[in-house]
Simulated assay, not measured.
Amino acid sequence: MTDTQTSAFPAAETGNKGAWGALLLAGAFEVGYALSVGGSQAFTVLTWSVSAIVFFLLTLYFLSVALKTIDVGIGYAVWAGIGSIGAAVLGAVLLDQPLTLAQSCWLAVIIAGVVWLKLADSPKLK
């Protein structure tokens, strides 16, 4: 990107914190997308369908911004982890979907895996 061009999300270009912020936003929008798709009933409910499309576009945009700085493997794992855990937990809270103890344990494994993956990428451990 040249000096004459501007970015829609300049914080991601100024440092790693901005990229991680974009990745967290992408994860949050992924949760919104997953819940909206569930509420759309196979895209037959207009309001849920429109919100699903909006959340989908937002999650892709912020994920692409984050992946300018963060390695794809790490970024995708964190994004997918946020999306799956957020959708499972909020689906249980907001949509009365069941969340069993076994499912909760496997979600904990996902969290541990994402944290471990990020720690393995730490410059202190290399």
Rank of each mutant, 00 (worst) to 15 (best):
M1L: 12
T2S: 15
T2K: 14
D3C: 04
T4G: 14
S7R: 10
A8G: 13
P10E: 04
T14V: 02
N16M: 12
K17W: 15
A19T: 06
A19S: 13
W20L: 13
G21T: 03
L23E: 09
L24V: 06
L24G: 10
L25C: 14
L25T: 15
L25Y: 13
G27M: 02
G27S: 09
F29I: 00
E30R: 06
G32A: 13
Y33D: 15
Y33I: 04
V37H: 06
G38T: 05
G38S: 10
G38N: 11
G39T: 02
S40R: 01
S40V: 06
Q41N: 10
A42G: 08
V45I: 14
T47R: 00
T47A: 02
V50R: 00
V50E: 02
A52E: 03
I53Y: 00
I53E: 05
F55I: 07
L57C: 07
L60C: 11
V65Y: 08
L67A: 09
T69V: 15
I70Y: 06
D71P: 09
G73M: 03
G73I: 02
I74S: 07
I74G: 07
I74D: 10
Y76C: 07
A77K: 00
W79F: 12
G81I: 01
I85M: 15
I85K: 07
A87F: 03
A87Q: 03
A87V: 00
A88D: 00
A88Y: 04
V89S: 10
L90R: 01
G91P: 00
G91N: 12
A92G: 05
V93Q: 07
V93T: 02
L94G: 04
L94S: 09
L95Q: 12
L99G: 08
L99V: 05
L101C: 01
A102L: 14
C105P: 06
W106G: 04
L107Y: 01
L107R: 01
A108M: 03
I110D: 04
I111C: 15
I111F: 15
G113E: 04
W116Y: 13
W116K: 09
W116F: 14
L117K: 00
L117H: 03
K118R: 13
L119E: 02
D121Q: 14
S122P: 09
K124F: 11
K124P: 10
K124L: 14
L125S: 10
K126R: 10
